Simulated scan of single mutants.
Amino acid sequence: MRVALLVNPAARAGAHTGIATRAAERLRAHGVQTAIVSGGSAAESSSLLRTAIDVGVDAVAVAGGDGTVNLAIQEVAGTGTPLGIIPAGTGNDFAATLGLRELDAKAAADAIAGGVTRRIDLARVTRADGSTRFFGSVLASGFDSKVNDRANAMRWPRGGSRYNIAILVEFLALAGMPYDVELELADGTRERVTGDLVMATVGNGRTYGGGIPICPDADPADGLLDLVLVRPAGRLRLLRLLPRVYRGTHGSVPEASIRRVRSVRLAAEGVTAYADGDPIGALPLTVDVVPGALTVFTPQA
């Protein structure tokens, strides 16, 4: 087997590079031909990865977090080329959805060398200009995208606690935003929701922000997406809701609703959506599910 191993282009001399080196050594010990791919930017890394796929690698692996995994997803979606993940990022939420988050470099490499794969869905975003992009875990808009704005601007601390601090700071300025949401349910029925929302989140996976279970029951292989809408309430009431979000039990409170959908169009003025932890575009956006679009390596039972 020949594998192209993509490394986070923003951390070529840092921790990701060391993890990638250990993973590559482990793969080679299994007899897997492994070439490390890393450009000077996301665009260059994507171009190098496309070239490797065109040349004929058998699989793609990623050493990094959700953003780096997202780069690889764009290249392998719908191709049948399997994707392996060596979790090495801040959040690793997509890896968590696949049961890979806690794997170290050697265990993740072993899963790739083992050759066991499964097919999962991807979510596809269509922007107002018609351009598209896939994501694997969660798209956030509203309060949670503002949290991402703040968390990404913070230099300290690292890890999931950065998101916790950003949540508390943004909470002080929390206000509802006028949304227009058009959704298609699993049975093909269409509905429209209008009015103020605190947030509108679309999940192919379960968690974001380093493990927050915003879509606690999402199944990345069920052919559907989970849509979470939260309506405004008093600040004290919403503060009491936060611990339920961290436990994944928020779906039972009156201000929150979780629906299974095939597609959803989100529109709100001045709101930028994030997907897999990175900005993906300003609303309005349409998100639909692409069943079985991605083949991933999974640990052997």
Results as ranks from 00 to 15, higher is better:
Ala4Met: 06
Leu6Asn: 09
Asn8His: 14
Pro9Val: 08
Ala10Ser: 15
Arg12Glu: 10
Ala15Ser: 14
Gly18Cys: 04
Ile19Glu: 08
Arg22Ala: 13
Glu25Lys: 13
Leu27His: 09
Ala29Asn: 11
Ala29Cys: 14
Gln33Gly: 12
Val37Gly: 01
Gly40Leu: 11
Gly40Tyr: 04
Ser41Cys: 12
Ala42Trp: 00
Glu44Met: 12
Glu44Thr: 08
Ser45Met: 05
Ser45Tyr: 02
Ser46Gln: 09
Leu48Phe: 05
Ile53Gln: 06
Val55Met: 14
Val57Phe: 02
Asp58Arg: 06
Val76Leu: 13
Gly91Cys: 15
Asn92Tyr: 05
Glu102Trp: 08
Leu103Val: 02
Asp104Gln: 12
Ile112Tyr: 07
Ile112His: 04
Ala113Val: 04
Gly114Val: 06
Leu122Glu: 10
Ala123Phe: 13
Ala123Asp: 09
Thr126Cys: 10
Gly130Thr: 01
Arg133Gln: 15
Phe135Glu: 05
Asp144Pro: 05
Arg150Tyr: 12
Met154Phe: 12
Gly159Asn: 07
Ser161Arg: 15
Asn164Gly: 14
Ile167Lys: 07
Leu172Ser: 11
Met177Ile: 00
Asp180Ile: 12
Glu182Thr: 11
Leu185Cys: 05
Gly188Ala: 08
Glu191Phe: 04
Val193Asp: 13
Gly195Trp: 10
Leu197Met: 03
Met199Leu: 15
Ala200Pro: 05
Thr201Trp: 02
Ile214Cys: 03
Asp217Met: 12
Asp217Thr: 15
Pro220Asp: 04
Leu224Tyr: 06
Val228Phe: 06
Val228Pro: 00
Val228Ile: 08
Pro232Val: 10
Pro232His: 06
Arg235Ala: 10
Arg237Lys: 15
Leu238Trp: 11
Leu238Cys: 08
Leu239Asp: 07
Arg240Ser: 07
Leu242Gln: 04
Arg247Trp: 11
Pro254Leu: 14
Ser257Gln: 10
Leu266His: 11
Leu266Cys: 06
Glu269Asn: 08
Tyr274Leu: 11
Tyr274Asn: 09
Gly277Lys: 02
Gly277Asp: 10
Asp278His: 14
Ile280Cys: 15
Gly281Trp: 06
Ala282Pro: 00
Leu285Glu: 04
Asp288His: 12
Val290Tyr: 03
Pro291Lys: 08
Pro291Gly: 12
Thr295Pro: 01
